[in-house]
Nucleic acid binder design. Sequence first.
DNA 1: TTCTACTTGCAAAAAAATTGCATTTAGATT
DNA 2: AATCTAAATGCAATTTTTTTGCAAGTAGAA
Lengths: 141, 141
Amino acid sequence: MNLEELKNILRDKNLKATDQRLELFSIFHSFHQPLTLKDIASKIKSSNAHEVTLYRIVSSFKEAGLVRQVDLQDSVPYFELVDEKHDHHHIVCTSCKKVSDFVGCGSSDLIKKALSQAKDFASINSHSFELFGLCKKCSKA
Amino acid sequence: MNLEELKNILRDKNLKATDQRLELFSIFHSFHQPLTLKDIASKIKSSNAHEVTLYRIVSSFKEAGLVRQVDLQDSVPYFELVDEKHDHHHIVCTSCKKVSDFVGCGSSDLIKKALSQAKDFASINSHSFELFGLCKKCSKA
DNA sequence: TTCTACTTGCAAAAAAATTGCATTTAGATT
DNA sequence: AATCTAAATGCAATTTTTTTGCAAGTAGAA
């Protein structure tokens, strides 16, 4: 997604394209991995964005469908850009917290299977799938 | 798992089998669905367990591997008993928060696939997989 | 029954998230 | 370019959630 597309999305949601929103978006974009609010605060500290503002921006991005909240079993919420194109998930090292990606969890078959089991559900709109283990470094140590 | 097995597990972890721990376990056992700390507090209110104690018990159960923390995208942490036997996951209605189960996400194949993609990872020990959608009631409304 | 380490209750603190309001600003309108 | 208005931000304060320290209580071993 480029700057113009971003501005259009924001405009559609009645969100103004402020410097801080653009900076936050570009941080997400350049790190493309899940970030905590503290991660974001440390990276954005050049400008003097207030912590409350980060909460509000992240929450508006979530509502706008730009950002998704991810649970990496680390007791703090992580956030990352929504990537519609890829069925993209995470592998997390429970020791050093390193995060790698993987693609293709085959969710469409699983969703069919799940709906056939759970007769009381009509449709599935999203899913989470994360793997937890040890990276090679931590595995040796 | 019966009472004796539970006591043995607690004993192995140097955890004493107190009334509150046994009651908390039986709550998890009888509801067998993910519960928040508030859920637990409301169900246990017969006895006068202090909120802090619930935090501590849940956290000790987590460390003991009895309980797992589950993210249902509801901004509060949920907890449920670990069920080693079943590869057991949740379908959550994003409207009314109803939770159903489904079994068999085929994680072993996915883990193989993921490890072949993420060359920097040695092993996977656990995974999360939850589906979010609409139950039939909310779908009609 | 006694003893000791683990547990709990209570109060308090720390951390995380939310809210109200005055000021500022993006971007539409003139 | 100047003006206007709804939305955004900063700041202070509050609320909610989670953690901590310590004295008193208790499970379970000796």
